[in-house]
């Protein structure tokens, strides 16, 4: 009985949570005049014109491609530098470890607007303005600390005896790390990858400041179109629906890592 009550609660929550997204979907299938004209539970005369526009105009679909490129680069960089660092924090005591660990997180604490001008000057100087790599590296500022923190939490959950046994068995550190340790924290890696992807995907200020045309992200395309033509709600809603898709695919791929959890019997 208890289990069922929980499930009902969960379904209720998810149902309510989906309402704004349903409304966005509803708007995306209507024309601007129709949206502003009258209240309608569902589109009486659904049109795919908004989606067609996004898929056929390069200014629109290139935004998705650009965002996907720099977000993927960012997630790869963040994970590959954060994994060894998180291991160091979870296993070793070294000079300044606690300060360093907390300092990392302080980089998420400043108002993002603070970084705009200095970043623009920095990346102009090295000639990286309007490249995907510039946005990917600038997003490391908030994603790397987060990745280290989340991974450290998962790694500390793995008993240290596993490391010791592996070293006694003659594993070298890189081999132990890749073949024994990483599989043990798959859940953590999955969650971290998703969060890096997500925070980089929705970030607008830095991405917009560091790009002009070649690497312009989708979120910036959306605001600019909005300001140029007045508000085209239907088009904006369609673009919004499409921004959800890549991230939903990512979580679909990592869902098993999150669900399987801890496999202690592996060693």
């Amino acid at each position: 009985m208890r289990l069922q009550k929980r499930t009902v609660g969960l379904i209720l929550y998810l149902g309510v949570m989906l309402l704004p997204i349903y409304w966005m979907l509803n708007m995306s299938l209507r024309t601007n005049a129709d949206i502003l004209g009258a209240f309608a539970f569902y589109p009486a005369d659904p049109t795919f014109a908004n989606y067609v526009k996004i898929f056929t105009e390069e200014a629109w679909y290139s935004g998705y491609i650009n965002s996907t490129i720099y977000v993927s680069i960012n997630t790869l960089i963040s994970l590959s530098v954060a994994l060894p660092a998180a291991y160091a924090f979870s296993r070793y005591r070294f000079l300044g470890d606690k300060h360093m660990f907390f300092w990392l997180l302080t980089n998420r604490m400043a108002p993002p607007a603070v970084f705009l001008l200095p970043f623009f000057q920095l990346y102009s100087t090295v000639g990286l303005i309007d490249t995907h790599i510039a946005v990917a590296i600038s997003h490391c500022l908030f994603n790397v600390p987060l990745a280290v923190w989340i991974l450290e939490g998962f790694m500390s959950g793995v008993p240290r005896e596993i490391d010791e046994t592996a070293y006694i068995d003659g594993y070298s550190f890189p081999r132990f790390f890749v073949s024994v340790f990483v599989p043990l924290i798959r859940a953590g890696i999955g969650v971290t990858a998703f969060f890096c992807f997500m925070f980089s995907w929705v970030e607008l200020l830095l991405a917009r400041t560091l790009t002009t045309t070649v690497a312009k992200p989708i979120a910036a395309t959306m605001t600019r179109t909005v300001s140029a033509t007045g508000l085209d709600w239907g088009l904006l809603a369609a673009a919004g629906i499409l921004t959800i898709v890549p991230g939903a695919l990512v979580i679909w791929f990592v869902r098993n890592y999150m669900a399987k959890g801890f496999a202690l019997g592996r060693v």
């Binding site: 969960l10 998810l14 949570m17 989906l18 704004p20 997204i21 409304w23 966005m24 708007m27 949206i35 998703f194 997500m198 995907w201 929705v202 607008l204 989708i218 979120a219 959306m222 605001t223 909005v226 508000l231 709600w233 904006l236 809603a237 673009a239 919004g240 921004t243 959800i244 890549p246 991230g247 939903a248 979580i251 679909w252 869902r255 999150m258 669900a259």
Partner: peptide, 24 residues
């Protein structure tokens, strides 16, 4: 799988778009 994917949906919308959608 279903609940994980559904839960993630609100997180994936760019922040300025969230404000705009909530206006309507």
């Amino acid at each position: 799988s279903v609940s994980l994917v559904l839960l993630a949906l609100p997180l994936l919308i760019p922040w300025n778009v969230i404000g705009t959608i909530w206006i309507i």
